[in-house]
């Protein structure tokens, strides 16, 4: 996973609440058994003129300069709700997004962001709205997300502080994989299972069927 320390980039403001994972990537766009080849399907329902088409809809902000180069998404409440599909995050990442700013996140989506090198920046609703409005108005003005100072700002808005649990920050900051991090506890896990096997033997299935 690519490490993240500080990013200054164009932000795409999609200030709707409940942007669900079906909107981020519709089921029909999840064509392969893999984590790649998804960027073209990102926001497909909004981005193209018709289902299955690749003709860009002029109404969708991401189809217009400079937003086509956005690496930061600004959204409304409860972003990433709906299906748990990680494809939503893989599609965002493959397109180039490295941060999502919103007043609230669906927890599965948020966890998926962290595991794939996208920083979930949770701000107060007014702060997110201020940034979103500014990003819409000052088209070319980039937004900066900084994992060292834990702030986000743009010319004329912010800085606004945000928080992340240490664990997540560590993974994003160093580009670490959570499995590596957990396997540092390997012995502890083995010992726990040994004790649990005595306590709840029925959990440990001995034979497959």
């Amino acid at each position: 996973m690519e490490a993240f320390s500080r990013l200054t980039a164009v932000a795409l403001p999609l200030m709707f609440d409940n942007i669900d994972t079906d909107i981020i990537i519709p089921s029909r766009e999840m064509k392969t058994v893999g984590k790649t080849g998804l960027a073209d399907g990102l926001f497909a329902g909004w981005r193209y003129v018709a289902v299955g088409s690749r003709e860009k809809s002029p109404d969708f902000l991401m189809n217009r300069a400079p937003y086509a180069d956005a690496k930061i998404l600004i959204a409304g409440q409860n972003v990433g709700c709906g299906s748990s599909r990680e494809h939503a995050v893989w599609a965002l990442r493959e397109y180039g997004f490295r941060a999502v700013i919103a007043p609230s996140f669906n927890p599965i989506f948020r966890g998926n962001c962290i595991r794939n090198g996208i920083v979930p920046v949770q701000l107060a609703a007014e702060e997110a709205r201020t940034l979103g409005d500014a990003a819409l108005r000052e088209e070319a003005e980039p937004v900066t997300v900084d994992l060292d100072s834990m702030t986000v700002e743009m010319a004329g808005a912010g800085p606004f502080a945000f928080a992340l649990e240490d664990d997540s920050r560590l993974m994003l900051r160093n580009g670490w994989d959570a499995i590596d991090l957990t396997l540092q506890h390997r012995d502890r896990i083995a010992a726990w299972r040994e004790a649990d096997r005595a306590r709840r033997p029925w959990i440990y299935l001995e034979t497959g069927r």
């Binding site: 990680e86 599965i108 998926n112 959570a178 991090l181 396997l183 896990i189 299972r193």
Partner: peptide, 22 residues
């Protein structure tokens, strides 16, 4: 509870998940 595919990999590989307590 529902998880993402990367978390599923984590659960399969380690028999555990890192979970923020709700």
């Amino acid at each position: 509870w529902g998880i993402g595919s990367s978390e599923a990999e984590h659960a399969l590989a380690t028999g555990t998940l890192r979970v923020r307590k709700p």
